[in-house]
Design a protein around this nucleic acid. Structure first.
Length: 745
DNA sequence: GGTTAGGCTTGG
């Protein structure tokens, strides 16, 4: 565990123990929580701290008992001496480039010294030893290129072990053994040529050759070895120091490895280039998996290229396949059946369809096709044999790496090609690219986490997850459409047509003819001879858009009708829809005491063609004023509403999705990011069938009819966890952000 | 205050 920072008073300062040079220094100290208000100092407030290397030396020279120190970048582990010294049950280790100690002078009653002026800052400086200068028994820091690696495998002891072979500009080659209890804390090496930085590892001779082995307090960071790719440290710790000198080291090693080094270059072997009996590494996407027996799991994978040899078909029990039914595509040489054996089965089982992965030391095995005469054509099957020799194994690759970017491109163009070739339906494509259905478009370089991790995290934070849609609300998608006032943040339902008809009738009661001075008023006939409209055409014209008119529509009954029915009505909702065209903006109005009024804001205040616009009840002016067009560039719903003193409400789409990923379920909103996500303008959703259809198609894709969980596609999502105040209470909410569905519809 | 492993294939 890494904590950010703590501070305390130095209670005890042990001697500097030095064996061979600075890197071997150790110093033990005890610090006590610096809390004067605490009357009874309990033993829990004192903690053992062990410093290593240059930091121990600096501490020894510049710190005295009683000093206040601020510690950061330390690791915490159980204290082995807790029974003996009855101090805090944990011990802090300060080692590595992220470890810092800021030393203040002993607390003085006088004004506190300004931080930085009287404070002594002690920071570790790392020196890196070339691999040809290692001496037996020394503790060293090294930078090197990986020329061989085995993924972490369990030992007979307590740890996982990974075995590496390293080299650097000195030309020396040294083996390296990493022991670490947690698999995920091992250095993240994805391919030969990756660069590794190791701190505090021990050099020792074994079998006549120099080797490196992890030592207490060791740490490792790795980098992609591709020349020119961004220098991004891969580390299990979130908080991490990384300076310019590190970039320099990485780039120098990359350049050297790319030019005149003995580092074997292993270009990615695509399925199309595989030959029988070859061992190779395959970077691919998992499409489906099936358990064959307790020692064998079948993985169906593809890398977007077509194998030039016939591929062996592996029969699978019906229902045993998780992740889709790729029967058609098997015949096209696109999908490799990989049989994963023994110690690799657990890893394979844990992979989700859609995952990008690398299979190391995969064996292309030619087999005669059952049922065909001997001498007949052979077909290739792929075996990941048991054991770890030659680095055999498989691992999921994080999204965003250069290899994955290339792979995704290949998969996409392959899917497009297939669409052309076979006229395949959307269903086929949706199946082929299960994780390509959504794409993040954020700049974050976050590691993917599980939903359980998101759920247990504190806002505000962003996360990247892979998840399936378990359920969503509302089921009737048009109900997701809402009206939103950006000023007062009110959200309202969009009324249906029946409600609107009633509201129109109610809103225009007690309507009297009137002729405002700022408009030209005309009487227009309707199909019903007893009904006429008064159209008040505003003389105000938009200077830049002279053809568009703003028309106020007021319905009046004819004089005959007036006699029999003294009450008149305003514009009817259906007639408004009928009257409005794409050219004019129409505003339904009524009059009272000789003045024109807008209807109340429970109905649209503005019509244009099929589009209707609402005003916010709270934020709009109640009186209809003479429209002002000063400074107006163009008539649109925004400028018209401004001219009328109406606060325009936006159409927005609000959905609630329940996500699942095997670790947990999580309810998320699709709201701010909705238009980006569906590639649909919320405004269009209100009146355009095409837009509604598109949204439905996307949701159907997430949850195909009668689909089981395993058939649903996986989505790459960027989530924002944040808190909102509701009724004075803080609530945590989660939204899908920066994510769009691929345009495959 | 340090066991484990210490690359080196092949079957199913």
């Amino acid at each position: 565990m890494t904590l950010a920072v703590t501070h305390g008073k130095v209670n005890f300062k042990g001697p500097l123990v030095s064996r061979r040079g600075d890197l071997n220094c150790i110093l033990k100290t005890v610090i006590q929580e610096d809390a004067p208000q605490q009357s009874q100092a309990s033993n829990d407030t004192s903690i053992n701290v062990v410093l290593f290397g240059g930091l121990a030396k600096d501490f020894s020279h510049s710190v005295n008992q009683g000093d206040i120190v601020v510690l950061s970048g330390f690791t915490v582990s159980p204290s082995p001496t807790v029974r003996k010294d009855k101090l805090h049950p944990c011990i802090l280790h300060l080692d590595g480039s992220e470890a810092h100690i800021h030393v203040c002078a002993a607390p003085a009653p006088a004004p506190a010294p300004a931080v930085g002026s009287s404070g002594v800052s002690a920071t570790t400086k790392y020196t890196y030893v070339p691999l040809n200068e290692l001496t037996h028994g020394s503790l060293v820091n090294v930078y090197a290129v990986v020329t061989f690696f085995k993924l972490p495998f369990p030992t007979k002891g307590t740890d996982y072990c990974s075995t590496l072979k390293l080299t650097d500009q000195s030309g020396a080659k040294v083996g390296c053994t990493i022991f670490c209890e947690k698999q995920e804390s091992h250095p993240k090496i994805f391919k030969i040529g990756d660069v590794i930085r190791l701190h505090r590892v021990k050099a020792q001779i074994y079998g006549g050759s120099m080797t490196l082995i992890t030592f207490w307090g060791w740490s490792a960071v790795t980098f992609d070895g591709t020349v020119g790719s961004p220098v991004v440290p891969r580390t299990p710790t979130k908080k991490f120091h990384f300076g310019e000198e590190d970039s320099g080291m990485v780039m120098a090693l990359r350049d050297w490895a790319a030019s005149d080094s003995p580092v074997p270059t292993e270009p990615t072997v695509h399925l199309s280039a595989v030959v029988p009996r070859q061992y190779f590494n395959l970077t691919c996407q998992l499409l489906a998996k099936a358990t064959m027996d307790s020692a064998c799991t079948l993985l169906k994978v593809w890398d977007g290229t077509r194998c030039s040899y016939p591929l062996l078909t592996v029969p699978v029990e019906p229902g045993a396949l998780e992740g889709g039914s790729p029967a058609v595509s098997d015949r096209q040489g696109l999908i490799a059946n990989v049989l994963v054996y023994d110690n690799h089965v657990d890893t394979a089982q844990a992979l989700q369809p859609g995952t990008f992965l690398c299979i190391y030391n995969l064996h292309a095995v030619p087999q005669s096709v059952p049922g065909e005469a001997s001498g007949g054509q052979e077909a290739l099957s792929f075996h990941l044999h048991g054991g770890t020799s030659f680095g055999r194994g498989l691992r999921a690759l994080p999204p965003g790496g250069p290899d994955i970017v290339e792979l995704k491109r290949a998969l996409q163009s392959c899917a497009e090609q297939m669409e052309d070739d076979m006229n395949s339906s959307l269903d086929d494509l949706a199946w082929f690219t299960p994780s390509e259905i959504s794409m993040r478009n954020c700049e974050h370089t976050l590691q993917q986490v599980s939903l359980a991790e998101v759920k247990s995290s504190a806002p505000p934070q962003f996360f990247h997850v892979r998840a399936q849609v378990k359920s969503f609300q509302p089921q009737r998608l048009y109900q997701s459409l809402k009206l939103f006032c950006s000023q007062c943040k009110t959200i309202e339902e969009v009324p249906d047509h029946k409600t609107l008809r009633t509201r129109f009738q109610e809103a225009v009661m007690d309507n009297r003819p009137c002729r405002p001075a700022w408009a030209v008023s005309l009487i227009a006939d309707t199909e019903d001879p007893s009904r006429k409209f008064t159209l008040h055409v505003s003389s105000a014209k938009c200077p830049a858009d002279r053809d568009s008119k703003l028309i106020f529509v007021q319905e009046c009954l004819t004089s005959t009708a007036c006699c029999s029915a003294p009450m008149t009505t305003g514009a009817d909702f259906q007639e408004m829809c009928h009257l409005s065209s794409d050219q004019e903006y129409m505003v339904p109005v009524r009059s009272s005491r000789g003045k024109l009024l807008l209807l109340d804001h429970t109905v649209p205040f503005l019509f244009r063609g099929k589009r209707q616009f609402y005003g916010c009840r709270q934020c709009s002016k109640r009186k209809l004023v003479k429209p002002t067009v000063e400074g107006m560039e163009v008539w649109n719903e925004k400028s018209v509403s401004e001219a009328l003193g109406v606060q325009l409400m936006q159409y927005v789409s609000l959905m609630k999705l329940e996500l699942e990923d095997g670790s947990d379920t999580l309810e998320v909103l699709l709201w701010d990011n909705s238009e980006n996500f569906f590639h649909v303008c919320a405004d269009d959703l209100a009146h355009c069938q095409e837009a509604q259809d598109r949204m439905k198609q996307v949701m159907d894709m997430f949850q195909p009819a009668d689909s089981s969980t395993s058939q649903r596609p996986w989505l790459d999502l960027c989530l924002s966890l944040y808190s909102v105040d509701e009724d004075g209470q803080s609530q945590v909410q989660c939204q899908i952000v920066n994510t769009q569905t691929r345009d495959i519809l």
